[in-house]
Design a protein around this nucleic acid. Structure first.
Length: 1124
RNA sequence: GCCCGGGUGAUGAAAUUGGUAAACAUGCAGCACUCAAAAUGCUGUGGCCUCUGGCCUUGCCGGUUCAAGUCCGGCCCCGGGCACCA
């Protein structure tokens, strides 16, 4: 026997496999397909550590197994190479990222090659290859064309250290996930993908996926769907409206009469001038007319439609002091129209001072009809960097807003707080309202806010707070009232104060809430801190389960007090132990006619316990309704219970009456134990919760009170009714925000769009893709919100594809997640220059049957990829709604010190060293033997050596080979059991037990005198997915086979040979194992029972007792039960 | 706080529908081979006791059952996701 020289063997076969194309996948095979996929690596400069290959080894084993089982297997690999690390390295070392990536890829390839993985390298892809990112850009363009990519001017997360905007998904505890810097909110122009359009599908389609529950759960959390309603709370202050009609219109036409009436009905004043020369307008004259005749003060809201919008823009530009709001309905800033020319186009001076317009309107709202004939182009100029500037694409009733009623215009013109709530049924309890500090309405309301300096100060303070400060620590409520303005609760017409407070988030719901302190813990805290009214609108209802009400019995309502009497010094509460009942209660009493609850409580405490010197500390939240049967009075009680808290000043007592003495004795009970000792008490859970948390908000369901006509109904049943009656709209809100898709950095896919002064944003024609990333001199981010690309004038300046005039390229790049959101499709057809993937190939392979990769991608990569895939499904590029049918997450391998492997701890183990020392086969097999695949583990070289011993044992078995050796009956059933076990375990990813089964087989073979070559061959084939090199060497060099072991058929087992002829039967007597014996498998039940009864030990344990029952579990166990 | 996982020897772990808890491996102890060591092989290895045998043992307490790591109820601890999300 030769020595087992792993280094030589492994190198030899790796070369041979490459030469033979052993793992090349054909698209033409008729075999059933299996697409086995790894999350492709980011080739970093430091290379792999032993934790990284765990998943690759698993897919390697799985794909080899499937291939040997007759599948046409696709197991490809590629590189996810865009992103910040390469760019930051480029900045530091002044090397082109292109070059670094190339070097890193070479290193990674070498490392992966050493492990002996069965990748089809002919399909290798790289996200930074222009031939690849051409299609990343193509997908983006399709999204743009479908309206799924839009520009946003909302403040976004800005990392001051990475100098780029980030998506919410890139944050960890409010810090930049990459560098740990505090993230700021910075308003800037961003490209955003409308992932929220897909939120519902992303959520519901999770159900059928064979994915780890934890990943699905994390996606559900991330999407964060909540159902509720949106209400509008009108601002009660009155405004002055100036309405400007458009070309050839008059105040009597279109929606103007209706709009005027609606505004006046709400108490606002309206001016609606007839503009001069409506048929043949002279803009300058119209502007002069408006400036001369209309009231344009800080309380004015100026609304202009179409050409009237142009007038309004010019008027605003000329103002001396800002007006409150400028509402532009289908207005123009450029003379380009989609439908037809307009006669006034030439008479207008199209040169605008956008900065002045922005300065002279506290808020700008632009309405664009979704089917507008106007080229949507220049709104950006009006909105960029405007605080609270807003572009709304809405559905107009008539084309170009020509209908007699246009509700969207009214909504834009009015000042109202739109709030989102998940508890619409509590709206009667909304006693104040809150705007997020960043809310645009604040700026608009500024003229009405009398304490503006204080509000502004609070706003500034909030913007400086990092998300972390805002959400963690004590969560103490802060805020500021907007003095001088109020909102109207649409349910009961009450005027309620408005606050701005940072416990309301800008980017969730509408950024504004109605506060219901009685039924929301946060609102309760805020109301307590600011002395705001707390009004109960849902009364908890409890039914006493120990004395439930009896049917057909008289109802008897009663006001009740529960007294929580605290000990003067100890943490104890006064309770009563009842005589003749199994009762232990609080001091309870009815409130008599003309008596206050406190008086009643004091009277009861004195009567029942004699304690008399007590201080009233307050009522423990709102009252609770409870139903029970009062046995002594033979009535059903409905009690309205208040809990009152007292503290005893001292322990002085008066004597108590004999009557009371006979009923119960007072006792001190620890506050903590209250929950377990008090009995019966239907209200107890509520009291305990309030005592423990100090928060009296009741967030459950119950009976509606203080809510007009709804009183007495069940809160669960009125949700929709109240929503509709009050004029709310049912709405679903997601925690998931749209995906901030642009990065102000160099090393990413250029966004393939062109900005044209006349045509607006124009997509790069598909024939011009890819838009290649140009070489630059400096990769430094500018920090101004512009990518380094902006400096390359020759690249930026380009003719507009639409009109041919000079235009500029979009200089933002895509985030790293872009290229990885669809790469699995490109492996199917990596060289196709005409299509992203040919439909035939896509249908042939998709979906991915097995996807393996780290849990850290649960929320981001997997959600983005699913989103893109669903989009590609919608535009008929792919045929499945989900990309990845089955997902497995490898558990992390920690260093031998139990800590995460990192340079910092000096515990990194390099796979190259391990492979050099012990061989790739030992390395692979050990990683799979460590424990359950999805569980983390600690690296142990000792344990690896154990696995290596096993491989060496298999190697040595060749010495015992003998053609004459029979398939010994003993090993035969073991062999078949092993085939079964290994096959099943690879399928279910239980590699550790598969290996243990192989160990048992090799241990057994070692005990044989001689081994049949067929048996040995089977063992080698079973081992080949785990240890491909060793197996191949034995298969070809020792067993003299011509074709690779990896192209063999997987062994099959024979059901009839799985079992030995004899079985061991265990015997239990009265539930305890007392004996075991061997018997032929064929023995009948009565034979086995008879044999069991005869056993000496069994007879001893049964003794004289009569056997009352005998249970037989076939081939396993007999259980004998005796009388007592 | 809410929602998911998970708790078994000295260690990594195993255990179909409830049916002999600790397979396989590491470590440790002893033995064989050897001048010696390494390597290899063999034996032992949950705890306690009155030791040819018995009692206890799968985070804790209780329940169902002839039989519970597995099912039910209550609690404790660890890991992860979300979190002032209305």
């Amino acid at each position: 026997m030769k020595h087992y020289d792993h280094a030589k063997i492994e190198k030899k076969w790796q070369r041979q496999w490459e030469k033979d194309g052993t793992y090349k996948t054909s698209d033409r095979s008729k075999k059933p397909t299996q697409y086995v996929l790894d999350m492709f690596p980011y080739p970093s400069g430091v290379g792999l550590h032993v934790g990284h290959p765990k998943g690759y080894i698993a897919t390697d084993i799985y794909s080899r197994f499937k291939r040997m089982n007759g599948y046409n297997v696709l197991h490809p690999i590629g590189w996810d190479a865009f992103g910040l690390p390469a760019e930051n390295y480029a900045i530091k070392s002044k090397t082109q990222p292109k070059k670094t990536v190339k070097e890193n890829v070479r290193h990674y390839k070498k490392q992966l090659g050493m492990i002996g993985l069965d990748y089809d390298w002919s399909r290798e892809i790289n996200t930074t290859d222009p031939a690849y990112y051409k299609w990343t850009q193509w997908i983006f363009l399709q999204m743009f064309k479908k309206g799924l990519a839009y520009q946003s001017y909302e403040p976004i997360n800005w990392c001051p250290s990475c100098k780029t905007g980030l998506a919410n998904e890139d944050l960890e505890d409010g810090k930049c996930e990459r560098c740990g810097s505090d993230v700021e909110q910075k308003p800037m122009r961003q490209w955003v993908l409308k992932i929220t359009d897909y939120a519902d599908r992303l959520l519901s389609d999770l159900t059928d996926l064979d994915w780890p529950e934890a990943v699905k759960e994390s996606q559900r959390n991330w999407i964060g769907r909540s159902e509720g309603a949106e209400f509008s709370f009108p601002i009660t202050q009155k405004n002055h409206y100036v309405l400007l009609h458009g070309f050839s219109s008059t105040p009597k036409k279109d929606f103007w009469p209706w709009l005027t009436r609606e505004l006046q009905q709400r108490g606002h004043t309206v001016e609606i001038p007839t503009l001069p020369k409506t048929k043949n307008p002279d803009i300058e004259k119209q502007v002069q007319h408006v400036l001369a005749t209309c009231h344009l003060t800080e309380n004015t809201i100026l609304v202009g439609h179409s050409l009237g919008g142009v007038v309004a823009q010019r008027v605003t530009e000329r103002l001396k002091a800002p007006i409150k709001k400028l509402v532009l309905v289908a207005s123009f800033t450029r003379p380009e129209f989609k439908d037809h020319d307009r006669p006034f186009a030439d008479s207008i001076d199209w040169d605008w001072d956008f900065d002045r317009i922005r300065d002279h309107a506290r808020r700008i709202v632009i309405l664009r009809d979704e089917n507008d004939p106007i080229v949507p182009s220049r709104e950006a100029d009006l909105l960029s960097s405007a605080t609270g500037g807003e572009l709304r694409s809405v559905v107009a009733r008539g084309g170009h807003f020509g209908a007699p009623r246009e509700p969207e215009i009214l909504t834009a013109a009015l000042e109202e707080m739109r709030v989102f709530t998940t508890r619409p049924e509590t709206i009667y309890g909304a006693t104040y309202a809150v705007l997020a500090p960043e809310h645009a309405l604040l700026n608009e309301l500024r003229p009405n806010i009398t304490n503006w300096p204080a509000v502004e100060k609070y706003r500034e303070k909030a913007s400086k707070k990092t998300t972390l400060e805002r959400t963690s620590e004590q969560k103490e409520k802060t805020g500021v009232q907007l003095e001088g303005v109020t909102a109207k609760n649409p349910a009961n017409g009450e005027d309620i104060p408005i606050y701005s407070a940072d416990y309301v988030m800008t980017n969730y719901g509408t950024g504004a809430i109605m506060a219901v302190p009685a039924h929301d813990e946060r609102d309760w805290e805020f109301a307590r801190a600011f002395g705001l009214p707390i009004r109960q609108v849902i009364r908890p209802v409890r039914i006493d389960t120990t004395n439930p009400p009896k049917e057909g019995t008289t109802e008897s309502p009663r006001n009740v007090v529960h007294c929580i009497v605290k000990h003067p010094s100890e943490n104890k509460v006064l309770t009563l132990t009842w005589k003749g009942h199994d009762w232990h209660t609080l001091i309870i009493g009815g409130v008599e006619e003309g008596e206050s609850a406190e008086e009643a409580a004091r009277r009861e405490i004195l009567e029942e316990t004699g304690y008399k010197n007590l201080t009233f500390e307050g009522q423990l939240g709102d009252e609770v309704k409870a139903h029970f049967y009062a046995a002594h009075k033979k009535v059903n009680r409905t009690s309205f219970t208040k809990a009152l808290v007292f503290r005893l000043d001292d322990l002085e007592r008066d004597p108590i009456s004999e009557e009371e003495e006979a009923k119960h004795t007072p006792e001190w009970t620890m506050l903590e134990g209250l929950k377990d000792t008090i009995h019966p008490c239907a209200e107890l859970d509520i009291w305990v919760h309030r005592l423990q948390t100090g928060n009296y908000a009741y967030t459950g369901t119950g009976e509606v009170v203080n809510s007009g006509g709804w009183n007495g109904m069940s809160s669960e049943h009125v949700t929709d009714l109240i929503t509709q009656t009050v004029g709310g709209v049912s709405r679903v809100t997601y925690r998931l925000n749209d995906w901030v898709f642009s990065r102000q950095r160099y090393w990413g896919e250029p966004i393939p769009l062109i900005h044209c002064r006349t045509c607006g944003v124009v997509p790069v024609p598909e024939r011009d893709l890819p838009v290649e990333l140009p070489d630059v001199k400096s990769y430094e981010p500018t920090g101004t919100g512009e990518s380094p690309l902006a400096a390359i004038k020759s690249w930026v300046n380009t003719p507009c594809p639409s009109c041919g005039e000079p235009a500029t390229r979009e200089t933002n790049t895509m985030p790293q997640w872009a290229g990885s959101s669809w790469y699995y499709l490109r492996y199917l057809d990596p060289a196709n220059s005409r299509k992203l993937v040919s439909p035939n190939k896509e249908r042939h392979w998709m979906p991915v049957d097995l996807y393996v990769g780290g849990m850290e991608h649960a929320a981001r990569h997997l959600i983005y990829a699913r989103f893109w895939h669903k989009f590609l499904y919608d535009i008929d590029v792919v045929s499945t709604t989900e990309p990845f049918a089955r997902l497995k997450n490898p558990g992390m391998i920690a260093g031998s010190d139990g800590r995460k492997m990192s340079k910092r701890w000096g515990n990194v183990i390099n796979p190259d060293d391990v492979i050099h020392e012990h061989g790739a086969d030992a390395f692979r097999t050990y990683e799979m033997f460590m424990g359950p695949f999805e569980q983390g583990g600690v690296w142990s070289t000792d344990n690896l050596i154990g696995v290596k011993r096993f491989l060496e044992r298999v190697w040595r078995l060749q010495d015992k080979l003998a053609d004459t050796a029979p398939a010994v009956p003993g090993t035969e059933s073991l062999l078949h059991r092993t085939i079964k076990k290994v096959s099943e375990d690879i399928t279910t990813f239980d590699f550790n037990t598969a290996i243990s089964a192989l160990m048992m087989l090799s241990n057994a073979l070692e005990k044989e005198e001689a081994i049949n070559p067929d048996t040995y061959a089977t063992l080698v084939v079973l081992l080949s997915p785990f240890a491909p090199h060793l197996s191949e060497e034995i298969w070809r060099s020792i067993l003299k086979n011509k074709r690779s072991v990896h192209l063999q058929s997987w062994p099959t087992y024979n059901e009839t040979k799985l079992l030995d002829d004899t079985v061991t039967i265990a015997v239990q007597v009265n539930g305890k194992i007392r004996d075991e014996f061997a018997i032929e498998r064929s023995a009948s039940e009565s034979d086995v029972l008879a044999a069991a009864r005869k056993r000496e030990k069994v007879r001893h344990w049964v003794g004289e007792s009569a056997v009352v029952r005998e249970i037989y579990v076939p081939e396993k166990l007999v259980s004998i039960v005796t009388a007592s």
